[in-house]
Amino acid sequence: MLSIKNLQASVEEKEILKGLDLEVKPGEVHAIMGPNGAGKSTMGYVMSGREGYEVNEGSVTLDGVDLLGLEAEERARAGLFLAFQYPVEIPGVSNLEFMKAAVDAQREAKGEEAVSSKDFLKMAREACKQVHLPAEFLKRGVNEGFSGGEKKRNEIMQMLLLKPKLCILDESDSGLDIDALQVVAEGVNSQRSPDRSFIVVTHYQRLLDYIKPDFVHVLSDGKIVKSGDASLALELEEQGYNWLTEQREQSA
């Protein structure tokens, strides 16, 4: 499904990703943890094609397609979805209009017809319901004045509508109350399937109680420094990251 090889990337001349490797097979859930500033969000931005992120080395392929050679919108149409750590507010553009345009664009890329407005409204309402967002949020400007938790739920709502192959959830759990955390996790779990994979970026073991990962990786200083199964997350929760960075310094 996803193959990241020796990815090196920089922002404004500053090297952030320093040789990142990651293999994700269909149906797998990978959790990525790691200290602030390690490059977790950068990884998502680079993969999704944000302007200003320079790739110096390496490759990212999704089902054999070279993502790095595509425009941001083409990557989305290829099946990539990034739930943002900080979703963007866009007053004047309604959530509904935005999602209709996105769904239609992705359908068009697949040679499918646009959905009728009526059918789409039904789909969108259903998606909202699933993440416990009142349907009025469809009429509001994209993320405009949404609370932190509402923004995160809105990201998951978008994921439900777009049905991507590979979802990167960048701290979709931060800022959520306990109930909302469960709602988001259920939204994600409802989408788990043998041909859909997830990369879940989080600081907290808590989310992983709900979304059981197949693998846990620690990203530190621009690369994966340790990988393991779900138990690694518990270990990190107890011990933090220091022991890992110390280990690396000793071995260096």
Partner: peptide, 18 residues
């Protein structure tokens, strides 16, 4: 613009929407 494009909306359409 990036946010809209990251959902599959073309650059030209995203510019118009914004």
């Amino acid at each position: 613009l990036y946010y809209l494009r990251s959902r599959g909306v073309s650059k030209a359409q995203a510019q118009i929407m914004l």
